[in-house]
């Protein structure tokens, strides 16, 4: 029971990060490998505001989200749009996007190392135990999970109910046909990319309440988010959430029963299983 809840809580926060990446990859077709750095920046901001002015990380979200949105929008418009234009095929765009976002991720890590040094940073926020089903859990973890669940649910509803959400889903399914029904695909792609970045940065602020981050941890989160997106199926919100929970649970199981140092290996085992048996994701249909 203890493991189950810990795993689910971890998975819930992973879901938020992976949702951000899924928006960027599923809609804008950019495999954003600098996603983890966005998360670390969100975490850094929460840390800085909390240590400087005791601002609650839950309030920091409202600063982080718009700033990250604008930042990611600029990244898309300035750096990625020219690549989309010059690409002759999806494969070429993918290669260029991978190299560019790698570059971007290294530049961001480099700048953060320069500005803040390579130290770990953490702060203690809501580090009180709460009792669920007879076991103790950190209140910060539970609150983080609540936040993530709320945001995921909100995003899911927005994508499925609102008109803008429908347009975004249309682009995710088929950019060519979306244009035929009068959707401005480039504009929407930029917005989806920005929104994805904002979601990830918020995830970072939330995660920093209970995990220790440093300037170069981003790639680890990118890795996990990528695995989740592929497990869940690209552009599939339900799949992403389910995959995130599975990953959180799997990692917790391995960390408790085998060794805490093997979490990535656990993620990889899941990844391989998916690649071998269901490469189209949990809910995906077989490509014809």
């Amino acid at each position: 029971m203890d493991i189950l809840i810990t795993g689910l809580i971890l998975g819930g926060t992973y879901a938020l990060i992976a949702m951000g990446l899924n928006l960027q990859y599923g809609v804008s077709r950019i495999m954003n490998l600098a996603n983890g750095e966005m998360l670390v920046i969100g975490g850094f901001t929460a840390f800085a505001l909390y240590t400087a002015g005791q601002v609650s990380p839950l309030l920091t979200i409202f600063i982080v989200a718009p700033v990250a949105y604008v930042l990611n929008w600029l990244v898309y418009r300035i750096m990625l749009r020219p690549l989309v234009k010059r690409a002759k095929s999806r494969g070429m765009l993918e290669q260029d996007a991978i190299l560019t976002t790698f570059g971007l991720s290294f530049v961001m890590v480099g700048l953060m190392l320069w500005a803040f040094g390579g130290d770990y940073f953490s702060y203690s926020y809501l580090a009180r135990p709460v009792v669920i089903f007879g076991d103790n859990f950190g209140l910060n973890r539970v609150v983080a999970f609540g936040c993530a669940a709320l945001l995921c649910a909100g995003l899911y509803l927005w994508l499925n109910v609102s008109r803008a959400g429908m347009a975004i889903r249309a682009v995710a399914v088929s950019p060519e046909n979306a244009r035929l029904v009068g959707i401005d695909v480039p504009k929407l792609s930029a917005r989806a990319f920005a929104l994805g970045g904002a979601v990830t940065a918020v995830g970072g602020a939330v995660i920093s309440t209970f995990l220790t981050l440093d300037a170069s941890t981003g790639v680890m989160f990118t890795m996990k988010a990528l695995i989740i997106v592929i497990m869940g199926g690209v552009g599939d919100v339900r799949g992403t959430i389910l995959a995130a929970l599975v990953l959180g649970l799997g990692e917790t199981l391995v960390a408790t029963f085998i060794d805490p140092g093997l979490t990535l290996a656990a993620a990889y085992a899941l990844f391989i299983a998916i690649l071998l048996f269901r490469p189209q994701g949990f809910f995906g249909r077989k490509p014809t």
């Binding site: 190299l99 570059g103 290294f106 530049v107 890590v109 480099g110 170069s216």
Partner: peptide, 8 residues
Amino acid sequence: TLLLGLSF
């Protein structure tokens, strides 16, 4: 790290 990024 910065150099690596800029080279990419």
